[in-house]
Design a binder for these strands. Structure first.
Lengths: 193, 193
DNA sequence: ACGTTCCGCTACGGTAACGTAGCGAAAGTA
DNA sequence: TACTTTCGCTACGTTACCGTAGCGGAACGT
């Protein structure tokens, strides 16, 4: 009877090596570049060892994405405009790096077709949206935003332009742009008209 | 000497069949699904015939995307808010359909890696952005918008949220959402503060 | 009607990745 | 130390797609 108290360090090692290689490959060559052969070659792990831990490249990829847990935090100083600018600027940096720039399109494309990836993508994105939603909820409570505002659309108006500029037009995401967005959206949202 | 007055109808037919099949395949299975074999199978065109007209799947795909010329028109009634709502609502519909929902992610992913597709994607997107930019330019001239406004960021604020909701959160794109965006952005942009 | 062009077909060799099986050696556990 | 587990390796057959060549027949232009 093998107890599951401490997993065999060999398993941990090979597992980690494969997942890391998978992450790198999807960032470099995209989705299609993640093949068992390629992962084996890059990680130094034997092909057969990978098959012992995952059924195929799909399961491997799901685990690889799930392992990527970078948390985004929105400050809460009381100054809504400054907090949003700071948080979105951090998002902008993330989008500029490999995670946002290379992983994201691959993931969106995959999510559009494979339901397994769709669910993974959903939880991935939801987790990253939560800090912003929390900060906005707090702003409504403290009276910084009107109570009848649509939070979902508001979030889309804040984050959407950044993704748009990164994915579609490949324009820069400097501080000026971020602050312009925050100012416009906040001012446009305050006046109930 | 073969004059190029009227191209052989056989070429036209096979060419069209292959391009159509390629478009369908990329919409259904994404980028990787477009293989010469698959295009041949779906179109009924012989594999060798395809190789006679294109070097490989890349060239075929480039032509397939280029052949897709759906023009988006922004109305110009003088009422900026109404015009933007109408145009963006049309964009929302496009995003809801196959073109936006399925083709777009595949294209973005491809553009992120293959420079050839990057350029294709750029001209594709630029063409679609032009009507909006033109309408906004006109609005600046007519005094509906301040002259010192940043058009690029403004466009991102208008269109970005729609792409965001479609690609990331898979939320609906109804008239209410579109109008909320337009109202917020216009009001937030008018006050120079 | 005639020569030309294009198409469909079959066939070929080559590459990449798949997924499985079995064996000895190394690394873990007790 | 004795055992169990995992690993790396080699080997094998299979699938999918690649890209090219050549041939006969059909479609085309004049």
């Amino acid at each position: 009877m093998t107890s599951s108290s401490t997993p065999d360090p060999r398993v941990v090692r090979s597992r980690h090596a494969a997942l890391t290689a998978a992450q790198e490959l999807v960032a470099e060559y995209g989705f299609r570049g993640v093949t068992i052969e390629a992962v084996a070659a890059r990680s130094g792990i034997a092909r057969t060892t990978i098959y012992r831990q995952w059924r195929g490249s799909n399961e491997l990829l799901v685990d690889a994405f799930a392992a990527d847990k970078c948390a985004v935090v929105f400050p809460n100083t009381g100054d809504l405009r400054a907090d949003l600018s700071a948080g979105l600027l951090e998002l902008a940096d993330t989008l500029g790096g490999n995670d946002g720039g290379r992983l994201l399109p691959a993931m969106l494309e995959a999510a559009e077709r494979d339901p397994e990836f769709a669910q993974l993508s959903k939880s991935f994105i939801d987790a990253r949206r939560k800090p912003l939603r929390d900060r906005l909820t707090q702003a409504v409570r403290s009276g910084e935003l009107p109570t009848d505002i649509d939070l979902e659309t508001l979030m889309a108006m804040l984050a959407g332009p950044l993704f748009y500029r990164r994915l579609l037009t490949h324009q820069g995401l400097g501080r000026a742009v971020v602050e312009r967005i925050v100012r416009t959206v906040i001012e446009g949202s305050s006046s109930t008209s």
